[in-house]
Amino acid sequence: MTEAATATIPVPSDYKSNVKPVWCPGCGDFGVLNAMAKAMARLGLRPEELAVVSGIGCSSRIPAYTACYGFHGVHGRALPTGTGLKLARPDLTVIVTGGDGDGYSIGGNHFLHACRRNVDLTYIVMDNRVYGMTKGQPSPTTETHWTSKLAPLGTGINEFHPMAIALAAGANFVARGFTGDPNGLADIIVQAIETPGFSFIEVLSPCITFRPEQKDWKKTVRHGNLSSTADLALAARQIFSDDGMNLGVLYAGARPPYRPPIGRGRVAAADLAAEFRI
């Protein structure tokens, strides 16, 4: 953004690059890109103060489509990359993005520890309950009976419950959004960024190519059906009686974020040698 542009009120298009997305027309991930841009504009953050970090997958292509600093890393490691960036550069607003395979399968351990560590990050998972990029294999959130070439009889494994896990592992903000409602999603993203600590947003983001039935999500989601609480026990009860289609903020807590001091040294590096001198 130029100096002149910063003087004016930011608009969502200021946060989008001119790189053309590789996504299939109608892919839910477009909605996430739009909602992110809306949220950024609403917060009035400058693109260069924002960093969008991702792993690998269709959804993970999102950083290059923003006008922010972006990092498109390896499969499953977006959270550590975002964590390192935020700890080294607390002045930046860091948003970590990716898919359900990226975040819950190959990167599952990092998900647990990012929640536990509670660094001031916003983590947006575009959950389509499938591996889109590798063309249609089941992911940890895929329904037991969904059949595919790799699992012709279904997985026979129960689905992972990301919001319950985020809650149990210590995330400070837990919410669910839907790409069919970019304004509602933008509201949630704004709240997530504004809440200190680790904010987790599960976004129902249909893969119209490998899960065309997800087009029906627009009929089955229930807007505003989750009620935000700072009471963990209430949030837990709510999420365990949820069918995955309720939208809104589930939990906004006040756990202190992990924020080790950086840039506040009292000693010159060369003086560290003193302890070794005989």
């Binding site: 890393g73 490691r77 550590p80 990359t81 964590t83 390192g84 080294a88």
Partner: peptide, 14 residues
């Protein structure tokens, strides 16, 4: 896996 990617993040941040 986290160690190396955390330092990648830090270094990307300068």
């Amino acid at each position: 896996l986290a160690s190396i990617n955390m330092i990648i993040g830090s270094s990307f941040g300068g």
